[in-house]
């Protein structure tokens, strides 16, 4: 469903010169699976997900979503995905209902179908009370709900959550994770990036641990634990990063 092959992304930075945000990252995810991208800030998670959502172009490598190429067929790819990120904000001067309706129409839904689907969504995500509230007056949690409704209104086969729980309180974050699990049950292919180990443990079928643009380890959680003989995911994570740091130091010396 999602396939990233040797994705590389170079930015030019004033001070540091060309910075590689991604160095030949490859992974694939299939329907009914939550694939986790796990890594600290600046690991390249957002860049990878932005490439998959066709907002950025890779410097090299290919990304295929739902059988379409992200570089040459971006419009087709965008029809297949729902993208939720810390950077995809809610319009200030639109109510929740208007916002979801607007994106539903952009995805090409018919009016009747759209209304039916929206009623369902608003019920399921418990958004009835913020239906006519302007985006500017919503709390972070409310906004996130609207974002989710916006991303799944067209029932896409692929969902991309980029640090979606950032800034949410425990209750709302829990509800979001439940929603993601529910979507997995519906057979969606879900890409979930986070820097919180607990979330990954709770939710992900497979994870890729990323650091500084590289994937350090990849597999199911059990595979990773067995391979590195470490039951605690957080400890595993620190080990991997420490080892990469040492290797990098060796090379530079």
């Amino acid at each position: 469903m999602i396939e990233a092959r040797a994705l590389t992304k170079a930015y030019s930075d004033l001070v540091r010169g060309d910075v590689l945000a991604l160095c030949g990252v490859s992974f694939s995810a299939s329907p009914g699976q939550v694939y986790g991208l796990l890594g600290p800030n600046g690991a390249g998670k957002t860049t990878a997900l932005r490439i998959l959502s066709t907002v950025l172009q890779p410097t090299s490598g290919t990304a295929i979503v739902g059988g379409f190429d992200c570089v040459t067929q971006p419009e087709l790819v965008r029809h297949q995905i729902g993208f939720i990120s810390a950077n995809t904000a809610v319009y200030d001067r639109m109510t929740a209902w208007e916002m979801v309706e607007y994106f539903g129409r952009l995805y090409g839904l018919e009016d009747d179908e759209l209304r039916e689907r929206m009623e369902q969504l608003f019920e399921r995500l418990q958004m009835q009370e913020i239906r006519d509230l302007l985006g500017a007056k919503m709390s972070t949690g409310m906004k996130q709900k609207v974002s989710i409704a916006r991303a799944i209104v067209h029932d896409p086969p692929v969902l991309i959550f980029d640090e979606a729980t950032t800034g949410l309180d425990v209750l709302v974050a829990r509800a979001l994770l439940d929603a993601v699990a529910e979507l997995r049950e519906q057979g969606k292919c879900i890409l979930f990036s986070t820097h919180i180990m607990r979330e990954a443990e709770r939710l992900c079928d497979r994870v890729a641990i990323m650091h500084r643009g590289y994937i350090l380890a990849e597999g199911t959680l059990d595979e990773l634990r067995d391979r590195h003989e470490e039951r605690d995911l957080e400890e595993l994570f620190f080990q991997l990063i420490r080892r990469q740091q040492m290797e990098a130091d060796l090379i530079s010396n």
Partner: peptide
């Protein structure tokens, strides 16, 4: 600035 452009760009609109 408000972060809504990326929302729009990730929609299927050309």
């Amino acid at each position: 600035e408000r972060g809504t452009l990326e929302t729009l760009l990730s929609s299927p609109a050309l």
